[in-house]
């Protein structure tokens, strides 16, 4: 069964909210395991691994460095060197927070890797979300790869003209100017052309629109979305009701 983009968005969002609200290590680990299984099943494990490593390795390393060595509130000291004290409480805090953040990050990443952007855009505009948001989303996601290649091409061109990046703040700033100005200039110029074209096609107009792309939305998934959102709201309400339980 193919999931409606809003259903997978709701599932990912409510899972992230519920793991944050529950703040329990076993639940976070279970979510991480489930995401790993789902990404293997969906065949996106390589892209997931690369993206997750880029985000989570610095985050987790920073958390363990920060709380593992410096946690003034901790009382059970395992080791200390000068001002740095390794405490049980600090390590515990770092572990719990890392697991919880990793679960939320992984679930959202899985969602963005499996979702089909054209479907999401069509679904959003069909549901009365302003077409402008859909435009910004789709346009950014398609511009991004184009711009990374263009930046590489601009650098090559400038290097052919004698650009050598050397030390020193002012030299670096000049190098930045050499590369960024052509990039920004061409992007702004193109945006102007695109604005005229869009406006000529009634982009700024209000009123009903028709779409070439139909995204099927079975009633079962509609109900599922409601249940997921209610569950997330309930988890938040429960946590706010009993702020210290389970912590």
């Amino acid at each position: 069964m193919r999931l409606h983009p809003l259903t997978s968005l709701a599932a990912a969002g409510s899972t992230a909210i519920m793991t944050t609200a529950a703040a329990s290590l076993p639940l976070s680990l279970a979510v991480i395991a489930a995401v790993a299984g789902l990404s293997l099943a969906g065949g996106v494990e390589r892209r997931m691994l690369a993206a997750a490593a880029g985000i989570l390795v610095p985050l987790v390393a920073s958390l363990f460095f920060l709380h593992g060595l410096f946690f003034p509130e901790g009382s059970v000291v395992l080791a200390h060197w000068g001002p740095a004290r390794v405490t049980v409480e600090g390590l515990q805090f770092a572990l719990e927070r890392s697991a919880q953040l990793s679960a939320a990050v992984l679930v959202l990443l899985l969602c963005s890797f499996t979702i089909s952007v054209p479907d999401l855009v069509a679904a959003l505009s069909a549901r009365g979300v302003h077409a402008r948001f859909a435009f910004v989303l789709a346009s950014t996601l398609t511009l991004l790869p184009a711009i990374t290649t263009r930046l590489a091409r601009i650098r090559q061109a400038q290097e052919a003209r004698g650009l050598v990046i050397t030390r020193g703040v002012f030299r670096r700033m000049a190098a930045f100017r050499w590369q960024a100005v052509p990039l920004v200039l061409s992007l702004v110029e193109e945006a102007g052309t695109r604005a005229a074209a869009l406006e000529a096609r009634g982009f700024g107009a209000t009123g009903p629109r028709t779409s070439y792309r139909e995204v099927t939305d079975p009633p079962f998934q509609r109900r599922l979305r409601m249940v997921l959102l209610l569950a997330a709201a309930a988890a938040v309400a429960l946590r706010l009701w009993q702020p210290t339980a389970g912590a």
Partner: peptide, 8 residues
């Protein structure tokens, strides 16, 4: 502890 009400 983590996940306290403040985070939400």
């Amino acid at each position: 502890g983590p996940g306290s009400a403040s985070a939400l």
